[in-house]
Design a protein around this nucleic acid. Structure first.
Ligand SMILES: [Zn+2]
Ligand SMILES: [Zn+2]
Ligand SMILES: [Zn+2]
Ligand SMILES: [Zn+2]
Lengths: 133, 133
DNA sequence: AGGATTCATGTTATACTGTAACCTTTCTTG
DNA sequence: CAAGAAAGGTTACAGTATAACATGAATCCT
């Protein structure tokens, strides 16, 4: 099954890319299940774990959801802007922030290994539409 | 029950402070339940939501857990260092990071409302104990 | 006082998220 | 082919969170 392994990951990644927006694991399951009626949660979670490991997918901790990476850099630190109005998610990268964050954490001798940076708020479109949170 | 409202929040906050480490909602439930055998999840989640609203408690998104605030500033942006070895959590504050983060997000017209910053890694003690992750 | 109101909590039930453990299939290697 | 590795299938469950409605205590108003 060496082949089918990658295929499952590919299907999951394709589903996430088609959607664009963050998806819960079970939404992914529903998408990928289309045609494979026997798909169960562990399969999806395994594929997601592998994709995250490979840097192709990020998990939005504060949303319990997953998105395809849009940066295509290897193992970067993603910074997410999450619109609480429309659900849109933007992914950014800032070496400054990563460094500063490592510096702050390192002041107490802490060795950072993984960063979670998620900013909730309102996107430009929703602001201009005059939807004051 | 105007009084008991605050009391429940106080009990939850006390449990979190006694523990020091992050607790899951259900761990809090078990602690607070001591003597109140009829306590159910919604009560705890409601108290936690109120405490978070009041800035007394933070939720660690990447741990699905809660901690009492140790900064005692009103509505600050907490930065958490989470040791994956021993579970210790440190809370820090950095106006620089907050500003830079707002600047990055704001480049696309995004209006930040809530920041989630959590750094996983290894604390100084665990590093010196020679536990290379 | 007496009734309406409010609000925290109690209560029940359920939805959503995630994983452990074991089995089956396929592919690789010797 | 036998043995082993890797991916996925399958079952079952653990953990996290909330909806919806009932209850009881304080408050407000007349
Ligand atoms: Zn990315
Ligand atoms: Zn928006
Ligand atoms: Zn704090
Ligand atoms: Zn540690």
């Amino acid at each position: 099954m060496r082949q089918r392994g990658r295929n499952m990951q590919a299907e999951v990644l394709a589903a996430l890319r088609r959607c664009g927006a963050p998806m819960s694991a079970y939404e992914v399951l529903d998408q990928v299940r289309d045609g494979n009626p026997r798909l169960a949660p562990p399969t999806i979670y395994r594929a997601l774990a592998a994709l995250i490991e490979r840097g192709k997918v990020h998990r939005l901790e504060s949303l319990k959801a997953f998105v395809a990476c849009r940066c295509e850099r290897h193992r970067h630190v993603p910074i997410f802007s999450i619109c609480e109005e429309c659900g849109t998610v933007e992914e950014a990268v800032s070496r400054d922030i990563t460094n500063e964050l490592s510096r702050i954490a390192g002041q107490s001798g802490f060795a950072p290994a993984r960063h979670v940076i998620e900013v909730h708020g309102q996107c430009a479109r929703c602001e201009s539409k005059g939807a004051p949170a």
